[in-house]
Design a binder for these strands. Structure first.
Length: 127
DNA sequence: CTTCTAACA
DNA sequence: TGTTAGCA
């Protein structure tokens, strides 16, 4: 893993900061976690600690919601990303088809290999 | 002072 | 979702 990614995955932001960064209430941020859309780390004092990736995900969730998606649907999107990411690593060993190569490149551009972002609608990079 | 959980005049 | 109580 590259250090740039490591920093984005470092959980160091208290919920108060995330509130300002996302414009959401603590209630909402905690609610999304309860729905399993988030999994922030915890400090020794049991305080939630968010990473920049978490903030990005929260921003995405915010957009998905405004786009009319329901919590359950958003959850499914992330579950599928999870499997898709695992499938990529597993396939990394042998040769990949031309189609898979295109799919992989597209994922890179969509910033998915890192567990989030993308919506079949807006981001539509020519692959 | 900030955050946490649980609960609802 | 907001808000509030009672802790840590």
């Amino acid at each position: 893993m590259k250090e740039k990614e490591l920093r984005r995955s470092l959980s160091v932001l208290p919920i108060g900061t995330v509130m300002k960064l996302t414009g959401l209430s603590a209630r909402q941020i905690r609610y999304y976690e309860q729905k399993n859309l988030l999994a922030p780390k915890r400090s020794k004092g049991n305080r939630r600690l968010y990473s920049l990736n978490d903030v990005d995900r929260i921003l995405d969730i915010k957009d998905y919601l405004n786009a009319g998606l329901k919590i359950a649907e958003i959850k499914h999107i992330y579950d599928k990303k999870r499997k898709q990411a695992a499938k990529q690593n597993h396939r990394m060993s042998g040769q990949i088809s031309d189609n898979e190569a295109r799919q992989l490149l597209k994922n890179e551009l969509l910033n998915i290999g890192h567990l989030q972002s993308d919506f079949p609608d807006h981001h539509n990079y020519p692959v």
